[in-house]
Write a protein that binds this DNA or RNA. Sequence first.
DNA 1: GATTTCTGATACCAATTTAGTATCAGTTAA
DNA 2: TTAACTGATACTAAATTGGTATCAGAAATC
Lengths: 152, 152
Amino acid sequence: MKVLNKETDYAVRALISLGMKSDGWVSAKVISDEQAIPYQFLRRILQELIRSGLVESKEGAGGGVRLAKEPGLIAVAEVIEIFQGKVQLSECMFRKQLCSNRANCVLRHEIMRIEKMVNNEFSQVTIGKLIDDLKAVEAMNKTRQTEQQETV
Amino acid sequence: MKVLNKETDYAVRALISLGMKSDGWVSAKVISDEQAIPYQFLRRILQELIRSGLVESKEGAGGGVRLAKEPGLIAVAEVIEIFQGKVQLSECMFRKQLCSNRANCVLRHEIMRIEKMVNNEFSQVTIGKLIDDLKAVEAMNKTRQTEQQETV
DNA sequence: GATTTCTGATACCAATTTAGTATCAGTTAA
DNA sequence: TTAACTGATACTAAATTGGTATCAGAAATC
Ligand code: FES
Ligand code: FES
């Protein structure tokens, strides 16, 4: 079962790219190359992020996009919601009118519990946090490389 | 974002139906009527549950299906895995060979954490537990109805 | 002012997945 | 022998997914 689709995945990676460049506007081309995301697909994703207010853009040569908020204030949960809607484990859940079986449904209670848990977790993971993780990993790799060179 | 599909949903409901009838074989027809599940679709789902060993069947007139294990020993996680595979939040996760971006991927760590949480939760929710919940709800409804009658 | 580098908007597409239907063969009880 | 069942499997329409393509317009630069 695959939960996050490519749009969400690419969006998060694009936001990470943006979050790591604090200076000026970044073109879709650059992000596309950096993260190996198909250019036209990424363009559509960025436009969606702009419409949602997570990212802002500047048209024309020298233009591009940049984060509209601090990385630490952008939760993965928001990104998921933009591209895939709120996490709903079972379809009948919030569209109560559509579900004829509601009265007999015991799944509802347990599923809502887990659902809330998941949403809560994704709300805690911000782009800022991911960037910190990434930097920590990079620092560790660097140290290891240096050690290896020393032993050569 | 819809996580559980109709197959899983129907399967769980069918298992609940079966779990509540401790006696003998139950035909697909009966379950189909009871849970308002399209007959042919349910048949395919039941066959899958049989192949997976959660349910056993008896052919011929008077035949049908029944649980192969105690309801308390059938976790929703198992059912999900049969129809949708293990919960994987992001696709690249376990198919490491397919993912060219692994070295740069920070999502991996956080996502695996949440993934484990979800799998763990679904492992705790058994058909038995859902049946208990259902019975509790039914009992409550009955009490409420009685009270209402008394006040009329 | 022409050209190049960008975004905005939107239409299109193939492949896959989802949800559901249909058919036929074989088994067992009555 | 017939009716009520499951086993196996093929088929389908519609939606979703992942990706492509096009054209218009904005700003910097030559
Ligand atoms: S609320 Fe609809 S089947 Fe559960
Ligand atoms: S492991 Fe593949 S992008 Fe994360």
